[in-house]
Simulated scan of single mutants.
Amino acid sequence: MPKTPDQLFAFLDGLGIAVKTVTHPPLFTVADSQALRGEIAGGHTKNLFLKDKKDNYFLLTVEENAEVDLKQIHHVIGAASRVSFGKPDRLLELLGVTPGAVTAFGIVNDTAGAVKIIFDEALMRHDIVNAHPLTNDATTSIAREDLLRFVEATGHQPLVLKLSA
């Protein structure tokens, strides 16, 4: 069973990580997010759940307006081939979220370590990073260093690479 937002917040609290969460109507796209979230300081995320031909999975977390060249990104992230979007059933199985709610926080549900999480260096220039807390009806603000510490606490090694143009 995937973790709930409350279980995510309890996990973060157990790590001594303070976050601030704002609820809002469900957001499905970056455009929705920009129009409805209100004023929330920090970098806002867009997430790409990708796979290569060998069924290696990747979660790329970039700034909401970032452009990622999907024809070339496999060279940067170490994929075995060009990448495509992962199927919604695998997204739910591995990260416990559905399309429209993809988030770096979903890595908490990847207990098998099947997904490689990579943050764009441009996003990580922000002191505060904003992401959905496993559902798309809220935005959680977390300090950049705490986000990386959270990912490590899930048993994953976060990478920070130049993903966007």
Rank of each mutant, 00 (worst) to 15 (best):
K3H: 13
K3T: 07
K3R: 08
K3I: 06
T4H: 03
T4Q: 02
P5H: 01
P5L: 02
P5S: 05
D6W: 08
D6P: 02
Q7V: 07
Q7A: 09
L8E: 12
L8D: 08
F9G: 01
F9I: 07
F9W: 05
F9P: 02
A10Y: 07
A10H: 05
A10L: 07
A10M: 13
A10K: 09
F11W: 07
F11T: 05
F11K: 08
F11P: 02
L12M: 10
L12F: 10
L12N: 04
D13H: 09
D13I: 01
D13R: 12
G14C: 04
G14K: 09
G14L: 03
G14F: 02
L15M: 05
L15K: 06
L15Y: 01
L15T: 04
G16K: 11
G16F: 11
G16I: 10
G16P: 02
G16M: 07
I17R: 00
I17V: 10
I17G: 03
I17C: 01
A18R: 14
A18E: 12
A18P: 00
A18C: 06
A18D: 06
A18K: 12
V19K: 03
V19T: 06
V19F: 01
V19M: 00
V19Y: 00
V19R: 02
K20Y: 15
K20C: 15
T21P: 13
T21H: 09
T21E: 14
T21L: 13
T21K: 14
T21Y: 05
V22A: 13
V22P: 08
T23Y: 00
T23I: 00
T23F: 00
T23N: 00
H24K: 09
H24E: 08
H24C: 10
P25I: 13
P25N: 14
P26V: 01
P26F: 03
L27Q: 08
L27S: 08
L27D: 01
L27W: 00
F28G: 13
F28H: 14
F28I: 10
F28S: 12
F28M: 13
F28T: 11
T29W: 05
T29K: 10
V30M: 05
V30C: 12
V30W: 04
V30Y: 04
A31G: 14
A31Y: 14
A31F: 09
A31H: 12
A31S: 15
D32G: 10
D32R: 07
D32T: 06
D32C: 06
D32Q: 06
D32W: 08
S33F: 14
S33Y: 11
Q34I: 06
Q34P: 05
A35H: 06
A35M: 11
L36F: 15
L36I: 11
R37V: 12
R37Q: 12
R37W: 12
G38Y: 04
G38T: 10
E39T: 12
E39P: 02
I40V: 14
I40K: 06
I40L: 13
I40Y: 04
I40C: 09
A41F: 11
A41G: 11
A41Q: 15
A41H: 13
A41M: 13
A41D: 14
G42R: 01
G42Q: 02
G42T: 03
G43I: 08
H44L: 05
H44W: 07
H44K: 04
H44Q: 07
T45C: 05
T45W: 02
K46E: 00
K46M: 01
K46S: 00
K46D: 01
